[in-house]
Simulated scan of single mutants.
Amino acid sequence: MRTPLRLCSLPLALLLWVLALPAQARVVPDLYEVVEAVPSRGTTDRTAASSRGLERVFVRVTGDAAIGSNPRLQPVLQRAQRYVQSYRYETEDNQLYLHLSYEPQAISEQVHKLQLPMWPNNRPGTLVWMAVDTLSDGRSVLRQEDYPELFAVLDSLAIERGLPVEFPVMDLNDQRNMPLGELWAQDEQAAERAGVRYGPDATLMGRLLQTSGERWQANWLLIHGGRSYAFDASGDSMEEVALRGINEAADLLAQRYAVRSDSTSQQSAVVLELSGIDSFADYTEASRYLQELAVVSSAGLLSINGDRMRVALTTSSRLQNLQDALALNRRLQAQADEGPIDLSGYRAPLGSAEHPLRYHWR
């Protein structure tokens, strides 16, 4: 059994030093790295590839698939080599490839300067279930082992959008927990039951229907954060309607979590109270996480009392954006709203010292 550590007895300088440490958040890797096919090692080809690669990075970072058409971004793309951190060449199957790594801080500065959305790299892991109904074979579950090319294309698109996805293995456990009929019906209870072994933050369910020899239709359902989003797609192939499902899911999640800064944004302090801080290790990990939040510009320790710590989070984001970001950390459990109401019926604003955001660290 762990012995609780009374954090209030620690030197304040040490506590502030810990608060400044980077967080150990679950993040999407390689947002700033791309590979471009090039015809030669020449400067002209490298310059063109750097511009194409930088546009792909901005798509991932902003969550906006059409960001390349934004006129404000064009001057940045024309000077793409300024943002290249490193590059190297590689040849595979007689094709020359250029591996490019871009400077994250420089790109973040441009996102802020151009007032573009910033999708933090701590993103919802999404479990994707799909069923198909073809004219020749009827209805079945889409399995990776049966359609390896399709799943490879979907995985590549997810990487391009910066969306972490996972596909069920469809073994006997998955078949029992997610029968074909419930998958086709897009049963949300079945999705919750079948997803337990994978622990996703979001679930995407798709049913793909071949309506004629060259026409396809798909119905998609994205389940995340207690909400459901339904959308449709149509196209000339199964691959096309499947790709549109991944794209639309990325759009929806980016719209929810992307933070947009502008010249009129005002910094504000939100008070957060965190219980369950039973040891110095808990304190260190929680402090790191809060300091690293993309929607937070600074985190200042206010007080420690027993297993509770209070922190002032400085942010220019809306309170809902901050709460959405906090909801992605499974170690944080939102607590019941206990804001006091005085005799006149007044309740202090949520996030104030009198009515802080309350979470439990688990």
Score class of each variant (00 low, 15 high):
residue 208 L to H: 12
residue 216 W to S: 07
residue 223 I to V: 14
residue 250 A to Y: 05
residue 206 G to C: 00
residue 181 G to P: 00
residue 300 G to K: 05
residue 128 V to A: 10
residue 305 N to A: 04
residue 335 Q to F: 10
residue 282 D to P: 00
residue 305 N to K: 06
residue 127 L to R: 08
residue 135 L to V: 11
residue 284 T to K: 15
residue 64 D to C: 05
residue 161 R to E: 08
residue 210 Q to R: 10
residue 347 R to W: 07
residue 3 T to Q: 14
residue 50 S to G: 14
residue 159 I to E: 11
residue 252 L to K: 13
residue 310 R to Y: 08
residue 188 E to R: 13
residue 195 G to C: 06
residue 79 R to V: 00
residue 317 S to E: 11
residue 192 E to Y: 11
residue 145 E to P: 00
residue 124 P to A: 02
residue 208 L to A: 06
residue 146 D to R: 10
residue 282 D to M: 03
residue 206 G to N: 01
residue 118 M to V: 04
residue 28 V to E: 09
residue 120 P to T: 01
residue 205 M to Y: 04
residue 81 Q to D: 13
residue 223 I to D: 07
residue 116 L to F: 14
residue 95 Q to P: 00
residue 234 S to F: 11
residue 81 Q to M: 03
residue 90 E to K: 14
residue 126 T to W: 10
residue 210 Q to S: 08
residue 278 D to S: 13
residue 87 Y to I: 02
residue 34 V to D: 10
residue 97 Y to E: 12
residue 146 D to P: 00
residue 124 P to F: 02
residue 286 A to H: 07
residue 13 A to V: 06
residue 128 V to T: 04
residue 74 Q to P: 01
residue 244 R to K: 15
residue 199 G to V: 00
residue 259 V to N: 05
residue 37 A to W: 10
residue 303 S to M: 01
residue 285 E to R: 07
residue 172 L to H: 10
residue 40 S to E: 04
residue 177 N to V: 00
residue 1 M to R: 13
residue 144 Q to V: 02
residue 10 L to V: 05
residue 57 V to W: 11
residue 92 E to L: 08
residue 350 L to S: 10
residue 117 P to E: 05
residue 26 R to N: 12
residue 170 M to Q: 14
residue 204 L to Y: 04
residue 159 I to L: 13
residue 63 G to T: 02
residue 262 D to W: 09
residue 130 M to W: 12
residue 58 F to R: 06
residue 350 L to M: 07
residue 342 D to S: 03
residue 101 S to K: 11
residue 1 M to E: 12
residue 120 P to C: 01
residue 314 T to Y: 15
residue 8 C to S: 14
residue 285 E to I: 00
residue 172 L to Q: 12
residue 320 Q to L: 11
residue 262 D to I: 01
residue 330 R to M: 02
residue 50 S to P: 01
